[in-house]
Every structure is written in C-alpha cells, then in structure tokens.
Design a protein around this nucleic acid. Structure first.
Lengths: 197, 197
DNA sequence: CCGACTGTACTACAGCCGTAGTGCGAGAGG
DNA sequence: CCTCTCGCACTACGGCTGTAGTACAGTCGG
C-alpha cells in the first residue's frame, strides 16, 4: 500500500477508468490494456488486478453500484407524509442529474445492463441494487395512497429509465429536457396513478 | 442472382443474422465471421457484402428500421377521434409485443442505439425513424386534447422505451408485465397528462 | 537480520478480428 | 460464340485481445 495519499484504492481507480471507457467507447472499447492506459497505470496492472474479463466486469459493476448509490442519495428521499410534491421534486432532481452531471455513469450503466443479459453473475448485482431502490419507492407511493404500489413503482422506474436512455442514447434528438419539464412529466404520471390530488 | 426462391435478398439474410447475433451475444459478438456462420453462408460472405465494420452496422440498422416499422404497423394506429381508449389499447399492444414476440429485435435495437452514441452515421437512421414515430404520436395526443403535445409525446415514448429496456435488460427481475398491466399503466399516464377524462 | 508474503510490473503466447487482394463462374450484350 | 462485368468464395496479414507465467519491491513477523 504505497500510496495512501489519495482516498481511492487502486481497484477503484481501475474501475473508474473502466466506467469512463465504457461510456466513451462502449463494450468493445473495454479491454485490459485500454484500462491501463486510461488510468495512467503501467501495462499489465488491470490484467493483474482482474485476471479475466469476467472479473473486470464484476469489479466495474460493483464500483458503478457504489457510485450510483451515492448519487441517488438516500438522504434526499423525502418523507412521504410531506405529500406527493416533495417526491416529485426529489425524483425529478435525481433523474435530471443522471442526464447532466452523471451522464457518463448513466451510459456505462446501460452498457453493463445489456451485458448482464448474457452474464448471470452480473445480473445479481443489478437485481440487488434495483430491488433496494424499488422497495424504497414502494414504501413512498404506498405512503401517498397508491392502491397498487408494486405496479406503480415499476411504472415510475420504467418512465425514469426510459427518459434517461432516450436522452443519453437516442430517440430524442439529444435534447435534454429541463428540470421543470421533468418535474411536469413526473407530476402528471403520479397524478394519473393516484386518481389526482 | 441465383436464388430468387426465397423472398429475402442476401443482404437481408446477413442483416437478420446480425440482428440475432446482437441480441444473443451483444456488440462484441457481432463479427464478420460470426455472421457468416450464423447465416449459414460460406466464410467471407459478410466481409464481402459489407467490407468495413461500419458498413455492416449500417446494413443492420437499416434492416432493423425496416422490420420494426412493420411491427409497429402504422395501420394499427387508431383514429384520434375514437377517444383515448383506443390509443391506449394500440400503444399497450405494440409495447407488449415488443416485450414478447419481438424481444430479439428490441434487444438488438438497444445495442445499436448505444453504439450510435459513438457513430454519427448510425444516429441518422435512429433520428429519422424516431422522428417519424414521434410526429404520429404528436398528432394523436393533440387530437386527444393535449395542451403540450411535444412534451407529452416525449414522455410517452420515454415510458414505453423504459418499460421495454427494463424488461428486456434489467431492473425488474425479468418479470414481463401482462398486457392488462401495460394497459393500466398507460391509461394512468395519459389520464395524468390530459387532466383526467 | 531474515525469510515469507503480498501487491505490482513486465513479458509471452495463442487466438481472433477487421480489412484487402485475388481467382472463379454465371449471365448480359454484341 | 466470344468478351465484359459483377457477385461470390477464399486466402493473407497486421494488429489487438484475453490470459498465464515470472521477476521484483516493499512490509511484516519472528
């Protein structure tokens, strides 16, 4: 442990470089050697830390979950007793941030999610993280009076995920909606679910 | 043109094999040689038809747009004067089909959409197809009395895209919602947009 | 003081990938 | 019947990839 100077461990450094690489060049651009170069480490470092490609992907997904959890900061989630307004605000803010400040992370997540389709070991990480978030959401919409919290949570997640994907990778002509627009969309979606408060 | 027997041209055959390959093995699994093998053609056929990788991707995207346009059949789109119910039915059906019968095509589309992030020539195809569909949707929601048809169309597309992505590649534990659930979700989303009919 | 250990740097190698070049056979036009 | 053209099959090659093996430096227990 020669460099305790930076807070980031060598593994985190490698994983962060891998995430950046995924966003920039896609799954075909993620190779052991490319990570070495992107991280400014000598050749062979990544290969040594994560011997196989599978190991490198798992390392990267773990790091992604860690960073996204911090972004989606739990402490920003409001008290459901405060009414639907604050939930709308919090979700809109989180979604909008994923589109702007954390675009790189969001893109890398989609790359890895697609890869997880074919690698069950990766799926486990996504399922776990997704379940944690969904459980929180179920509790929140239940608190708001949802009659079918499970279905409503899934619908909310689908909408947010789709917005992020569309903005980051497609469909819309790369026009990122404003925070106000995101807020309006979410407000309407929730209003439809809850009857209309 | 030795075999006019099958309706599919050699190019379509190659492109269809490429789409199947994308869904099954992802972007890293799409190679000239792999397409030859998957299509049952002699080695070198794909390499000859699409000399560069870029050419192969463009061929594949064109074919995808063609097949998806057929699936999203325009004739299934209802007359907006018939009220929001039939739009909900039509969209729910199209979405549900993408999740079940056309899962392969949907997965391939996400692979290619991500790749298009880094290949402007591919983006053009997606933007064109997306714009056509969005214009139709704008007309439909306008007919239903939407006060902000642009934003509402984008929100609808985002929701549908997110649902498809989540089911096909992640988040939800691979539990594909029933047609009835999709219909409920969409009904609520539209109700929220339109005030509440 | 020294041996074992752990994390790191470097090299080696077999295999696959994208791409270009060449020869062949069938069909069209004269 | 001959030639020209065009699509197709096949081969070649430089480069990159994943993975394994090995040598080295700093650290800790004794």
């Amino acid at each position: 442990m020669s460099e305790r100077t930076a807070g980031a461990s060598r593994a985190d450094l490698v994983a962060d470089a891998a995430l950046a690489l995924l966003a920039e060049r896609g799954m075909r651009g993620l190779t052991h050697r490319a990570v070495d170069q992107a991280a400014g480490l000598p050749q062979g470092s990544t290969s040594n830390l994560a011997r196989t490609r599978q190991a490198l992907l798992e390392l990267t997904v773990r790091r992604l979950a860690e960073r996204e959890a911090r972004v989606l900061a739990l402490h920003e989630m409001p008290d459901p007793r405060a009414g639907s307004g604050s939930l709308v605000d919090a979700l809109a803010l989180a979604t909008h941030r994923a589109l702007t400040r954390n675009r790189e992370l969001t893109l890398a997540r989609y790359e890895l999610a697609l890869e997880a389709t074919r690698r069950p070991e990766l799926r486990a990480y996504f399922d776990a993280a997704g379940a944690r978030f969904r459980d929180q959401l179920v509790a929140l919409v239940t608190g708001l009076g949802s009659t079918e919290p499970d279905r409503h949570s899934l619908s909310l997640i689908a909408w947010a995920d789709g917005l992020m994907f569309s903005c980051v990778a497609g469909s819309f002509s790369a026009r990122v909606p404003s925070l106000a627009e995101v807020r309006s969309d979410l407000g309407e979606l929730l209003a439809g679910m809850l009857g209309r408060p």
